[in-house]
Computed example of a mutant assay.
Amino acid sequence: MIPFVDLKAQYRSIKDEVNTAIQGVIERCEFTLGSEVAAFEKEFAAYCQVEHGIGVNTGTSALHLALLAAGVGKGDEVITVPFTFVATVSAIDYTGATPVFVDIDPKTFTMDVNALEAAITEKTKAIIPVHLYGQTADMDPILEIARKHNLVVIEDACQAHGAEYKGRRAGSMGHMGCFSFYPGKNLGAYGEGGMVVTNNPEFTRTIRMLRDWGAEKKYQHVLKGYNFRLEGIQGAVLRVKLKYLEGWTEARRTAAARYDSLLAGTGVPTPYARPDVRHVYHLYAIRTQNRQAWQDALLAQGIQTGIHYPTPVHLLPAFADLGYQAGQFPHAERAANEVLSLPMFPELTAEQCERVAQAVQELAMPVPAMSEASPVGVA
């Protein structure tokens, strides 16, 4: 079986370091926040080319607290895309604000910057571009529009650790950037985790309080806050793994290039990477109008795949109250019906890539027409 993601292979490669780091946290009894989390915050912020990092318990919490720090609340609107994991939109909903959608670019799956300005109203407070599958959104036009309308930009970089746009790291371009360290991410914890990165010291101060019951010092509760603290063990694990992230990223990019080469000329739409972006391939999503048949056929050959995401958020029952209808965001809806994610992880071998690509090639081959000269049953 070729797994969709192989976390066990990655663990085996760093087992001794990880075990030692975890044991150190246990011996020091720094289970919540602590020195490992503080060190990781500094190291990951530097990796993202920003001044500050605030560790939290999930990527969802990172988005939620970033919005609150920006002053987003009831009566406000926040613009994002419907083709994303539901957490992007849920975080907006948690603040009491209203999510407003714009369609995606059909090539990159990221925000269609040409549709952005028309969605802005007097209630708009922030924009959340989603860096999907490991590729950043087209940030310069987004930032220009935001400056024009005095809007806060919060990057959803939960799938884009180390991605770059014109030489700038994901998370460093907007007012804040939000990351998830869910185990399957390019930089994944051994549990849950997230972080907000920013150059703004006031946002940093506010988010640090909000993650820890609104307290600036113990029992001095300045804000109505939350229990969104990052655990010490996760900070230790992530510090170990951060040292290897660049190597793992290049391994992903190598695997993606191999897929690209092997699938060239087959007619299978492969991921489009903008020339000014460093794509980090959290996912490698092809497109097919026969997705279920292809997924079933690949699994029958021992190849696991994934679907990210089968229903755009505006059509999910949970957000029916927003009043959107099918057909309003055709590019997002078509992508949701067609994307199929192939196995992608740093330890993916050349042989595994070749086997997956061969199976996809066979599925993409047209069925030969039956010759009239050779009727069925005639030898």
Rank of each mutant, 00 (worst) to 15 (best):
L315A: 03
F85H: 14
M111H: 08
T20W: 00
A163M: 01
E231D: 13
A170W: 04
G171E: 12
N150Q: 14
P317H: 02
L262E: 13
I92H: 02
G75A: 05
E246N: 14
P141I: 07
M209V: 02
W248R: 15
R287M: 10
M365A: 15
Q49W: 09
V56A: 01
Y94T: 09
D105I: 09
N199V: 05
N199P: 02
E250V: 05
M370S: 12
M111V: 08
V152Y: 13
Q301I: 01
F203G: 01
Q352Y: 07
A69D: 11
A126S: 07
W248A: 13
I307F: 11
V339R: 14
D112R: 11
F44C: 07
G174F: 07
G177C: 03
D93T: 12
K123L: 06
R287E: 15
L340Q: 03
V356W: 04
H308Q: 11
S13N: 09
D112K: 09
L238T: 06
G191L: 08
P269W: 13
I104E: 02
E250M: 12
V102K: 07
H331W: 12
L187D: 00
V280I: 08
M209H: 03
L342G: 06
A38F: 14
K243T: 13
A255T: 06
V152W: 13
Y324F: 10
P183A: 00
L116F: 05
A293K: 12
I120A: 07
T58A: 00
P106F: 06
P368H: 09
L151P: 02
M111P: 07
A273I: 12
W294Y: 11
L315P: 03
L262Y: 08
G235T: 07
N114P: 01
F329Y: 14
K125C: 04
M365I: 13
G53C: 08
Y324L: 11
A273C: 15
L263K: 03
I14P: 00
I128H: 04
L263V: 11
H175I: 05
P368D: 12
G177P: 04
Y11N: 00
